[in-house]
Simulated scan of single mutants.
Amino acid sequence: MLIARTVAKETIRYEDVPEPVLAPGHALVRVHNVTLCGTDLHIWEDDYPAGLPVIQGHEFAGIVEAIGTNGAGIRTGDRVAVSPMVYCGQCRPCRMGRFNVCENIGCIGCYSDGALVELVSVPVEKLCLVPDGVDLDLAALAEPASIAMQAVNRGRPSAGETALVLGSGPIGLLAALYLTDLGVRVVCADTEPDRLELAAKFGAVDTFQVDPRTEFPGAAQAARLDALTDLAGPELVIEATGVPSSLENAVRLVASAGRVVQVGISARMASIPVNAIPFKEIDLLGSRNSLNLIPAGLELLARHRDQARALVTHRFGFDSLQQAFELMRSRTEPVGKIVVDMPASSAACETDTPAFTGAKA
């Protein structure tokens, strides 16, 4: 079979290797679609802790081609998304049920070889059945959906509250979608107007364009936020950019006794007045991965297929991965989710959108 291995910085090598052998407790999945995210870009740029070489691809879906013992209700021919997270089950977080922050955490396609292959072997317990009516290219989005849902759940939202989502990339948009489902009023902020147009379709009742050169929110934006929150500020803020100033804004704007959830990732330093946390008695929470929420993510996508489809801005064939990563890095045009159509997908012709190499969706 053909695989794509990232062997060095910004270098992908295609190799012909033997297909994996079916092992007990595992399934062989014919990969149909892989979606790319910022983590994939960091790995390709050799700016990721696990290092290279590695076969990338951690957001993926396909069809079960063979299954070993202990099928757990999964059968040959089933359409599945795959949960890529690997955890030890023995460390303190795992024993607490917080395996999403396992001390020995791994991830298929990040810390170990992943889905940019024609056929992949994965443990059966990692397989999640795709609901009817959800195409496999959208099913690959269940992993980012699960991350967004974990962040929302960490914030303990209640119907009738107002939430501010900072960042309208895929995670922020999916968080807005889930919050809206839960009966929360959502306000989205981003620097890009095209993303804010999309946020309105994901349930945002108002959107704010951020100018990085000036204080956020501006006077008119602050008045609108005050009107939505009875001058108290949003009860919940989801920070989905990883930009230090955005976390600073989150702490400053959140209501007293409110919650701030940091899901955006960055190694940069933020500057927060220490007294802002005790004076307002806010909960400052981190969020990473998810607690096996990919099935719930699939259901979210099933309920909102039009919005899920709107996340996909570009498609590339398996033979055009280099161009896909170069587009992600250059940002010469708006990029949401990039779908990689694997050979099995092209052969099946099962997606709504034609799989043209390098085409916009």
Rank of each mutant, 00 (worst) to 15 (best):
M1E: 14
V7E: 02
A8Q: 11
E10Y: 00
I12A: 10
Y14K: 06
Y14T: 05
E15T: 12
E15N: 13
E15Y: 08
V17N: 11
A27Q: 00
L36C: 10
C37I: 03
G38W: 00
T39Y: 10
I43A: 14
W44P: 02
E45V: 13
E45S: 15
D46F: 01
D46W: 03
I55W: 03
Q56V: 15
G57Y: 07
G57L: 05
F60H: 00
A72P: 02
I74K: 00
D78M: 05
R79F: 13
V80G: 08
P84Q: 02
P84M: 02
Y87C: 11
Y87Q: 12
G89Q: 09
C91H: 03
C91W: 01
R95C: 13
F99I: 12
F99D: 12
N100Y: 02
V101F: 12
C102Q: 07
N104S: 13
N104V: 12
Y111R: 13
Y111T: 12
G114R: 03
L116N: 01
E118W: 10
S121L: 05
V122A: 06
V124R: 01
V124I: 12
L127T: 04
C128N: 10
G133L: 00
G133T: 04
D135M: 14
L138R: 10
E143S: 07
I147S: 08
I147T: 01
A148Q: 01
A148F: 01
A148H: 03
A159W: 12
V165N: 06
G172T: 00
L174P: 00
L174W: 07
A175W: 03
A175Q: 01
L177D: 07
D181G: 05
G183I: 09
R185A: 10
V187N: 06
A189T: 11
E192W: 04
E192P: 05
R195M: 05
L196M: 02
L196D: 08
A200T: 13
A200D: 15
K201E: 02
K201V: 08
K201F: 03
F202I: 01
F202M: 04
G203P: 03
T207H: 06
V210P: 00
P217C: 11
G218R: 09
Q221I: 07
Q221H: 09
Q221K: 07
A227S: 03
T229F: 10
T229D: 04
T229V: 09
T229Q: 04
P234L: 02
L236P: 05
I238N: 00
A240F: 07
P244W: 04
P244C: 10
L247D: 12
V251A: 00
V251T: 00
L253A: 01
V254K: 00
A255T: 03
V260C: 08
G264T: 11
S266V: 06
I272M: 07
A276Y: 05
P278A: 06
F279E: 13
L284D: 11
L284R: 02
S287V: 05
R288C: 09
L291Q: 08
N292Q: 15
G297A: 06
R305E: 13
Q307R: 07
H314T: 11
R315Q: 03
L321I: 14
F325W: 02
R329G: 06
T332Q: 05
E333D: 06
V335A: 02
K337F: 12
M342Y: 08
A344V: 06
A347D: 15
A348Y: 09
C349Y: 15
T353C: 14
P354A: 00
G358H: 04
A359W: 13
K360T: 15
K360N: 12
K360C: 14
